[in-house]
Amino acid sequence: MITKERKRPLKIQKLEALLRRLPSHHPKYEMIKEALAKSIAGFRGEQSLDYYLSFLPSNEFLILHDIRFPYDENSYFQLDTLILSTRFLVILEVKNIAGTLYFDQAFQQLIRILDGKEEGFLDPLLQIKRQHMQLETWLAQRKNLPLPPIESFIVISHPSTIIKSSPNHKEAFEKVIRPPMIPLTIEHLKRFHTKEILPMKPLKRLATLIQKQHTPSNPDLLHQFQIDKSELLRGVICPTCMRRPLVRKRGSWYCPYCESSSKDAHVSSLQDYFLLIGPTISNQQLRDFLQISSATIAKKLLVSLDLKQSGVTKGRTYELETLLNHK
């Protein structure tokens, strides 16, 4: 049973918003475009597991996707997929990397060869060891919970990737799998771990606790890419031709380029503001970002969205987070 669904990462939404709001000639544009492509590829790789995870009996397993929770006061650890059962736990770390992958035991590195180019990565086997240790430590701190055995695997999700390793690299042979191997791997673990450690009721409480402590990653992309908010393009973007700025006419947004009109084109622009600049906005900030001059029109737009407000008169601000679910 899936107890925490896999959702489109906030980072992807932020990268898409940043590309919309930067001129294509901006010096960081291609770098951001590449970062978005990598993030989307990673997410698609994680999604490719879902079909094979569906074969696991829902009455035996609880599945949590994309979880991130505190390890200590200053750090978090993140797991792509965590499978809970009464007898054992399983960490799945997904790598959607194309090309030929070589797990080098001697130097504890992953070498990727693609289009004749050789590139080195940190060894994912070290990563799952660290995740194993972090999860074990986190569970040990919950004194009322027995400590079930933890198994961890690297799942190479790209279908055409060729996997190689150093001779006699036992760990790579045991820990690196393909998505179709997930049900068979879990079945093998069931035969190996026969003792019930954590009955289903406390197991469900553990799943609930993990979800409560989950803290989504919320990167500040302007800081990360060293972009000032003054560099962002202002104005409402046309949902039809993606050009800007739209003009406000008789209660609608009019596009002077493709001549289409929209009642709520401003919503996506306010979503961009939330993703890139901040969670709240004032009347003046809205006028500046949407490029409209009328405070009255700005207030009508804000009030129509039924946003939570704080402050009074000129100091009033509106919370934008609920707009992310706006259709």
Rank of each mutant, 00 (worst) to 15 (best):
M1K: 13
K4F: 05
K7L: 11
R8W: 02
L10W: 06
L10E: 02
L15F: 06
E16K: 13
A17Q: 06
L19G: 14
R21S: 11
S24Y: 00
H26Y: 03
P27V: 02
Y29V: 02
K38A: 15
E46P: 07
E46Y: 06
E46N: 08
L56F: 10
N59A: 11
F61L: 07
L64V: 01
E73W: 05
S75N: 14
Y76I: 01
L79R: 06
D80F: 07
I83E: 07
I83T: 09
S85C: 05
E93S: 14
K95M: 08
I97L: 12
I97V: 09
T100Y: 02
L101C: 03
Y102K: 06
Y102R: 04
Q109W: 02
I111W: 08
D115N: 10
F121Q: 01
L122G: 13
L126H: 12
Q131N: 14
M133I: 14
W138S: 05
L139F: 08
L145Q: 04
L147R: 02
I150V: 13
F153E: 11
V155Q: 10
S157V: 07
P159N: 12
P159I: 06
S160F: 13
K164G: 08
K175E: 01
V176Q: 01
I186Y: 02
E187H: 13
E187K: 12
K190H: 13
E196N: 00
K201F: 13
K201C: 11
A207Y: 04
L209F: 00
K212G: 01
K212N: 05
Q213H: 10
H214A: 05
T215S: 09
S217F: 12
L222N: 06
H223F: 13
F225Y: 15
I227Y: 00
E231D: 14
L232Y: 12
I237H: 10
T240S: 15
T240N: 15
C241I: 07
M242F: 00
R244H: 12
K249D: 04
C258F: 08
S261N: 04
H266D: 06
S269A: 14
F274C: 00
L275V: 01
L276D: 06
I281Q: 03
D288K: 09
Q291M: 13
I292Y: 07
A295G: 00
T296D: 14
I297T: 15
K299C: 09
L301M: 12
D306K: 15
K308G: 00
G315Y: 08
T317F: 02
Y318C: 10
Y318I: 05
T322Q: 09
K327S: 14
